[in-house]
């Protein structure tokens, strides 16, 4: 336990100290990193811990983002309050989507959620909803300043806000997966029928996990809307779902701290891929994904856990 505690503490100190040393743009990037990490953590709760695939988390991210944007734009609600609102809305939607998902396994669930991801931008552009969603144009959002006269730029303030959300959600997730509930989730992932016969209410846990996972991703979406100050249908397409999934795989299935590593990967590797070949970034990204599956199918989490095992056995 001490290694983990120490690492967490070092991470937190660095994370708190870092904005003072870097430019506004890098702060913005780190904020996006934390936002993606929250979304990846949400997807990992579903896929990694509960064994349900989703290629549709871009939809929940979109719902979170639009909830925040519409609440601020149409109803003038403070941005802080849009975060729990987005979480609640997405929890409800995810919980409801979890019911049909109950009947689907593995590839089938991937298919249904793939459909959800592909269809989402089209739904957002729907004419009758244009009054709220702004149609193809999307919605602009004001950038909030630091409150209470804190000596922070608005980039720095949003960074700290996101960091706080990340830490809170991480601790909640950690408690969830180490509790009885977490063991039930793992049991369901490994063998749903055996779990059922041990008295675990599989349907309830699966739908609740879908809801919680969607809520995490929705909160990330809301933060994303506030930080980028803009939402538009085409930024929430299928590729965003893919990105989250890649983040989970890179970070490591069912390993929460991997969210940071996964987020760093999906944020910086496309840039790196672009350095290798400008027009071919997507292809380079794809090749990296394939190599990852061959070389380290259990992601960073796998490497860390085998390293820890070696350290402890000494």
């Amino acid at each position: 336990m001490t290694i983990e505690r120490t690492t967490a503490l070092v991470f937190l100190i660095c994370a708190l100290a870092v904005p003072a040393m870097i430019s506004g743009f890098v702060t913005f990037q780190l904020t996006m990193l934390l936002i993606y990490a929250i979304a990846i953590m949400g997807l990992n709760l579903l896929t990694g811990f509960n064994g349900q695939f989703s290629l549709g988390h871009s939809a929940f991210y979109a719902i979170g983002a639009y909830t925040a944007a519409i609440l601020m734009d149409q109803f003038g609600i403070g941005y802080i309050w849009t975060l729990p609102a987005a979480g609640l809305v997405c929890f409800a939607v995810g919980f409801l989507f979890g019911f049909p998902a109950l009947r689907l396994e593995g590839t089938y669930l991937a298919l249904a959620t793939f459909g959800l991801a592909v269809a989402t931008p089209q739904i957002l552009k729907l004419t009758p909803l244009e009054h709220w969603t702004g149609g193809v144009q999307g919605v602009f959002v004001m950038k909030p300043n630091a409150p209470f006269g804190l000596p922070l730029t608005s980039d720095q303030w949003l960074y700290y806000l996101t960091l706080a959300a990340f830490v809170l959600l991480y601790v909640l997730a950690k408690n969830l997966v180490t509790s009885r509930t977490g063991r039930a989730l793992l049991a369901i992932r490994e063998n749903p029928i055996a779990a059922q016969s041990m008295g675990i209410n599989v349907s309830l846990y699966k739908t609740l996990t879908f809801g919680v996972s969607a809520a995490y991703t929705g909160i990330a979406g809301a933060l994303g809307a506030i930080v980028i100050q803009f939402v538009a249908p085409d930024s929430f397409g299928f590729m965003l779902s893919v990105t989250f999934l890649v983040g989970v795989v890179v970070g490591g299935i069912a390993w929460l701290p991997g969210a940071i590593i996964g987020a760093a990967f999906i944020l910086f590797v496309p840039n790196f891929a672009e350095d290798i070949s400008k027009g071919l970034s997507g292809a380079v990204y794809g090749i990296i994904m394939i190599l990852l599956i061959y070389v380290m199918p259990s992601g960073a989490g796998g490497i860390v856990s085998s390293a820890l095992r070696v350290l402890r056995s000494r």
């Binding site: 896929t47 695939f53 290629l55 593995g106 590839t107 991937a110 590729m239 893919v242 999934l245 890649v246 795989v249 299935i253 027009g279 071919l280 970034s281 997507g282 292809a283 990204y285 794809g286 090749i287 994904m289 394939i290 990852l292 599956i293 199918p297």
Partner: peptide, 19 residues
């Protein structure tokens, strides 16, 4: 290999061909 590995590789191929 598990379904997740397959899904990731399919998606990777999608990205490669599209791009």
């Amino acid at each position: 290999a598990p379904a997740l590995s397959h899904i990731v590789v399919f998606i990777a191929l999608l990205a490669i061909f599209n791009n």
